[in-house]
Amino acid sequence: MPADLTPGVLPRVAVLLATHNGRRWLPEQLDSVLNQSGVDVEVFVRDDASTDGTAEWLAERSAAEPRLTIIASDGASGSAAANFYRLVQLAPADREFYAFCDQDDIWIPTKLSSHVRLSLALDADGVSSNVTSFTADGSRSLVKKDFPQRRFDYLLESPGPGSTFLLSRRLIALTRDFLNSAQAGTVPQHHDWLIYVLARAHGWLWHIDSVPTVEYRQHDANVMGANVGARSALSRLSLVREQWHRGQAQLLTRVAISVANDTFTAELTLMRELVDKRDLRSRFALARRASQLRRRPRDQWIIGLLIVAGVW
């Protein structure tokens, strides 16, 4: 369960900020984090071999801002997820709550305090939310992630962008323990997928809130983007055809089994067999579970058809 709080003392939230060539967006993003209301916020940042002056700007800003701590890089990580994984491993372990922060978004002022309240009220170890995507030309749209959670949705999708996550101390500890003991090639390529799997398979509650808490900037350097529009759909279909998505699902299923409580182990073992096999009988058996694999009804039909056709 989330950590108990001392009456009259603001909850401490450690914000883990991963940067790489984000100098042009960082001032606005960091200000929106440090100006969060109703929480005692600290930012721990690790720069991943930037070449645009990001590291130098962070050093200058941290010299004047005691709530900003730079975690020294021990070499280029190679991806945003790997950078976040190192932050989880290296950040202090004694804060009540933890949050992930991208370098190019903008947080609404009550993001952290509202999610802390939800975590405590619902006894949820993880909280995420919808976001509002925006572009340089002023276009804005809701990115809806709060479709009802399904029995095994955590094996095929995240609960929203990692930049919306608020995590309990024990969930961060579980993640850290997994990362510290993981063998090469067994760590999923997206940190938001991994943490969702760890929480859900362990039997801990995750809440996806309908209120957008992040202004989600869309630009050419986005790692994943808002997952809307035809271009995004084609990109993800390509990953499906190349078996990348299935490979990640196989990996996530094994992670889930490694932390699952007795209630979920038998079901997850069956899911591992169905995800691993490609024969017609197994495909139909897995397709019959399509309604439990994705949250959005449209996506349930799509994944079911892709599984039966042997594309996924």
Rank of each mutant, 00 (worst) to 15 (best):
S291M: 06
G75Y: 08
R24N: 05
P92E: 09
R289E: 11
T51K: 12
R296I: 09
S73F: 09
S113N: 00
A121F: 06
S73A: 15
V223I: 15
N83G: 00
A18D: 05
L26H: 02
Q189L: 11
G126Q: 04
V9Y: 05
R140I: 05
S133D: 13
G78Q: 07
A76M: 10
P161L: 04
L167F: 00
G160D: 03
Q149C: 11
R246F: 02
I303L: 08
E267M: 09
L194C: 03
G185A: 11
I307Y: 01
V240I: 14
D48Y: 13
V45T: 13
L120E: 02
D137R: 13
A266L: 08
I257Q: 01
I172P: 02
A76E: 14
S210D: 12
W244G: 12
S79Q: 12
N261W: 13
Q300P: 06
S291A: 12
K277D: 13
Q243R: 12
L234S: 11
V127E: 01
T135F: 09
V240A: 12
V223F: 14
S141L: 11
L286T: 03
N227W: 08
S114M: 00
V15S: 03
R200F: 12
Y85W: 05
V13M: 06
P92F: 04
R117Y: 08
A124F: 03
D102Q: 07
R254W: 05
R272E: 14
G22H: 00
L270R: 15
S114G: 03
P92G: 10
P159L: 04
V275A: 06
D94Y: 07
S37E: 15
R117C: 01
I302S: 03
F100H: 03
A309M: 07
S235P: 03
W25H: 12
G203F: 06
V45F: 07
P148H: 09
Q103H: 04
R61I: 05
V116C: 00
A63M: 06
V131K: 08
R200Y: 14
K144W: 06
R67V: 04
S37R: 15
V187C: 13
H20Q: 15
A18G: 08
K145G: 02
F100N: 03
S119K: 01
K277A: 14
F100E: 02
V45D: 04
C101S: 06
R298M: 11
T19H: 09
A285S: 14
A173Y: 02
D104V: 08
I307S: 01
Q292E: 11
W57V: 06
D262G: 07
Q243C: 03
V9L: 00
D137P: 13
S139D: 14
F44T: 00
H219E: 04
F147H: 15
R254F: 08
W244N: 13
W57N: 09
D209A: 11
I70A: 03
N261F: 09
T265P: 03
L155W: 15
V143P: 04
R272K: 10
G162F: 04
A64H: 13
V228C: 10
D276T: 13
E42I: 09
